[in-house]
Design a protein around this nucleic acid. Structure first.
Length: 519
RNA sequence: GAUUCCGUAGCUCAGUUGGCAGAGCAUCUGACUUUUAAUCAGAGGGUCCUUGGUUCGAAUCCAAGCGGAAUCACCA
């Protein structure tokens, strides 16, 4: 079934057919690229490469480039166009008499369009207007674009016809990337950030591992999972919501430090800060505690800021954020007291509910003490924490995998780093007492039975692993997407995820499901 | 899930009180050998998101739906 083509698409399809009739393959096999746009612009030296009046003959700067035609200015027997490659744009000069007989008039002028991908061989020169350009001596069609691009025209002051529709940009990210160099740059920065993170961890000897995405029991976080089914074993499987329990099994197994950078999946709502599949970095280090981990986190993130930007001070939205260590450390209850005037330590559930109500929160009967504390923190404290801050020592009910605090009853040794009003990491001294862990799991199971869809499942195999003995361990999880948002000054998680989840397009709604067990 | 806003040509957008569907860029034809939003002359291009309703008449008013965005809720 073929779509009805727009006028412009039909023109391009006709051009493709005429190319084939003329013996030109509109989809070539390869092209020998020797140079890229940006390095050519930087490498051009007018004194060496440009003909000078009464000067010596220039040394030709010969290049072979390839890319997409992004603009065209045709003037009779000569033309200029801009070619865009992975590094940027460079202007190409073509004149009729430099190309094979008839090619300029019949092919270049009539059959090529903005958006087509071509290869150019020629020499670099500077135009009368001063723009460094390539004088084409050979031009080949490498790929014909059958759809028109949403063309962006730019001057130094203004941009015209820029695609601003976010739906278009997210659904057709390939087009977004073609027309928005800053989007390409954002994703390059994200890649550099992950590379730097990996380098930082590798340098310290931690082992990068891969643990199961498909899990018979999900755990390690409070979230609703995606469910799937394995046909051959006829078993229910869950997409992981966290890597935590498998990584700690590896600490039991004798690794001193393991980490994983991978996708987690949570069957929850979408927002500026939430995508159902997102990237998490989890790290576990034996014989360390959460205080040690705080130092590692601030060192890591300071390192990332310096690697990406050469400074620890980053502009993020309206704020300038300084990642220089050491970061402020503030126990959760002190942070709440600072903001609300209420000291919650030692208060029971009903006293906490009364404080919550006084602050204007909607407190439901089903909410436990930990949940109320979390609500108060999330509502009145977290949004105000702009500079990176470690919030420490959380209620035990909120942290079923964290070790009891060595000196504060009812709390665990846990911290979150908050920055720009959002959590960027979560870490604790890991609970390694299997009997305590069993009780915590059992409490989670009770919560689940009471209807908490995010309660954890009891993982017998994990308890068995702990019973063999897990050394004292510090664990960390960093939301890579949210960190990338900070590092690239992006206001939506969709701006740092190449293909964010959207509802299917209407045209695809009728597409048939893949039958179970097919292929 | 709630609220608000949005959906018109390939792209960005206008469209008056409800009265022939518009502009710029892009496309097509012609001119033009250093342009750069090239320029000049001419032309073509529309499921006005969808389905109903009101009306002599709907892009416009009403209802429902679809899709998107923002905010909120959810998100240890």
């Amino acid at each position: 079934m073929s779509r009805i083509h727009s006028e412009q698409e039909q023109v391009r399809r006709d051009a493709r057919a005429r190319m084939e009739e003329a013996g030109i393959n509109p989809f070539a096999y390869s092209w020998n690229v020797t140079h890229h746009a940006q390095p050519v612009l930087e490498g051009f030296d007018p004194e060496r490469h440009q003909p000078q009046e009464d000067g010596p003959a220039p040394e030709p700067f010969r290049v072979s480039v390839a890319g997409r035609i992004m603009s065209r200015r045709i003037m009779g027997k000569a033309a200029f166009f801009h070619l865009q490659d992975a590094t940027g744009r460079i202007q190409i000069y073509v004149s009729r008499d430099d190309l094979p007989e008839g090619f300029y008039n019949e092919v270049f002028k009539k059959l090529l369009d903005i958006g087509d991908i071509v290869g150019i061989e020629g020499f670099v020169f500077q135009t009368r207007m001063g723009e460094i350009s390539i004088h084409a001596e050979r031009l080949e069609v490498l790929a014909k674009a059958l759809r028109p691009l949403p063309i962006v025209k730019e001057t130094e002051e203004r941009t015209f016809n820029e695609v601003t529709d976010k739906e278009f940009r997210y659904r057709q990210r390939y087009v977004d990337l073609i027309v928005h160099p800053d989007v390409r740059e954002t994703f390059r920065q994200r890649a550099r950030m992950v590379t730097a993170m990996r380098g930082f961890l590798d340098e310290r000897g931690y082992v990068e591992v891969e643990t199961p995405v498909l899990q018979p029991i999900y755990g390690g976080a409070a979230a609703r999972p995606f469910t799937t089914h394995h046909n051959a074993l006829d078993m229910k499987l869950y997409m992981r919501i966290a890597d935590e329990l498998y990584l700690k099994r590896l600490i039991v197994g004798g690794f001193d430090g393991v980490y994983e950078i991978s996708k987690d999946f949570r069957n929850e709502g979408l927002s500026r800060f939430h995508n159902p599949e997102f990237t998490m970095m989890e790290l576990y280090v034996a014989y360390k505690d959460y205080a040690w981990m705080m130092e590692l986190v601030e060192e890591l993130i300071e390192h990332l800021a310096l690697t990406l930007h050469g400074t620890t001070e980053l502009q993020v939205g309206a704020h300038t954020i300084n990642f220089q260590r050491p970061w402020k450390r503030l126990p959760l209850f002190d942070a709440i007291e600072e903001r609300t005037g209420h000291q919650l330590f030692g208060k029971d559930r009903d006293e906490l509910a009364a404080v919550g109500k006084k602050l204007g929160l909607h407190i439901e009967d089903s909410m436990g003490a930990g949940k109320i504390i979390d609500e108060i923190f999330g509502g009145f404290v977290e949004p105000h924490l702009i500079q990176p801050t470690f919030i420490t020592d959380y209620p035990v009910e909120l942290s079923p995998l964290a070790k009891k605090h060595r000196s504060k009853a009812g709390l665990v040794e846990r911290f979150e780093a908050i920055c720009n009003g959002k959590e960027i990491c979560n870490a604790f001294s890991e609970l390694n007492d299997p009997d305590d862990q069993r009780e915590r799991f059992e409490e989670q199971v009770r919560l689940g039975k009471r209807g908490d869809a995010e309660a954890m499942q009891l993982d017998e195999d994990y308890l068995r692993a702990l019973e063999y003995g897990m050394p004292p361990t510090a664990g960390l999880g960093i939301g890579v997407d949210r960190l990338a948002m900070l590092m690239t000054n992006s206001e939506s998680i969709r701006d740092v995820i190449l293909f964010p989840l959207l509802r299917p397009e209407a045209e695809d709604a009728s597409a048939e499901d893949t039958p179970e067990g097919a292929a």
